[in-house]
Amino acid sequence: MDRLKSLLTAILRDWMMLLGLLLLATVFFMAATAPLFFPQPPDTMMGPPLQWPGQYAGAPLGTDGLGRNILAGLFYGAQISLLVGFASVTVAMVFGILVGAFAGYYGGWIDNLLMRVTELFQTIPQFMLAIVVVAVLGPSIQVIIFSLAVVSWPAIARLVRGEFMVLREKAYVQGCIVVGMSDMRIIFTQILPNAMSGVTVMSTIMIATAILMESALSFLGFGDPNVTTWGTMIGMGKNNLRDAWYIMTIPGIALLLTALALNLVGDGLNDYLNPRLRSQRGQ
């Protein structure tokens, strides 16, 4: 309870983080209420094409080249962005934490092996790797989530490994060995909770990256063809860039603000967790 209270005061004091949270809440609201405000799917042609924002009453933010409601696209696109962002980072976290924890705790050949594998993934440019995975397995939401997880986990693994290497030398971990605690229990109940603050901050920012990468994939036509995402909307808009630039710009701004929001929240969390971290680790 105390911790929750201190988090809340920290949020209220840090207006940048507050702004980030408000923006993020807006995106969540859009995703949750999409079917409520727009019962028709976002790819329905609901009016005349290329209507500028404010021009056509049924679509406040205008329509695209095929007469689809841009506002509806934004709402439904928010669902996909959030789903892809959170799901891929969750998968990446589970895998990255496991690899990092074992490598960092055991060291030696286990560390060597796991880190060589991690480096292998890191040497391939992230976006290229994601494209290859999607190209091989076929474009669907599940595959996209998987491909983004594949490119995101190495960073988490390295971070967790670093934390574990420091923490396993702490006297309290030695103390746990001396009282006869098992390795698994030490890794998951003693060290991991103390290593999580860095991971939390990093994963927040990685969600932003994942959302941007999903849009880039969709923009290039590697997205799931059955769903409307901000990336596909931007991709569609490029044909009308000269006469109707708003088609690209509006989802572009949505993307920008979402990524910004996640970064602000990540920075805020970092500021909040770090002073605690210092006092907890004994200066």
Partner: peptide
């Protein structure tokens, strides 16, 4: 043998899990 041999560490700050 663990229950029979125990240890008190030097650094009172790092020897207890902060959480």
């Amino acid at each position: 043998f663990r229950p029979h041999i125990q240890c008190v560490f030097q650094d009172p700050f790092s020897s207890l899990n902060p959480r």
